[in-house]
Amino acid sequence: MPEPTYIITAVLVSSAVTWALRAAPFAFLAPIRHSALLPYLNESMPVGVLTILAFYTLRHTPVDIAPQTAAAAAALVTTAALHIWRKNAVLSVVGGTTVHVAIASTLPLFS
């Protein structure tokens, strides 16, 4: 169990970094407004950063024939399929999570 002082420091650090990223560019961005690098990074960074984050959340899933693995795989496919089909973020997240909870909560009972 982490210490409360550590948690609050972590929250404040995250908050300060985020606020700096939101506020500082108003002062510093003007000179590089016309640089071609900014729009390039703006277009190509998010898809990779988000892929890494999605991987990170699954990093402890065993690569194995385990109930956890089956639940994660089925839920990933469900989420992606729903999102490609309907483009509705809420529907995709709720659908994928429901499949995950259903499999992860019931499959261990049978094995």
Binding site: L53, H83, A89, V93, G96, T97
Partner: peptide, 10 residues
Amino acid sequence: FAVTAFFLVL
């Protein structure tokens, strides 16, 4: 898994 689904959707 909601977190994973959220990042996958994004």
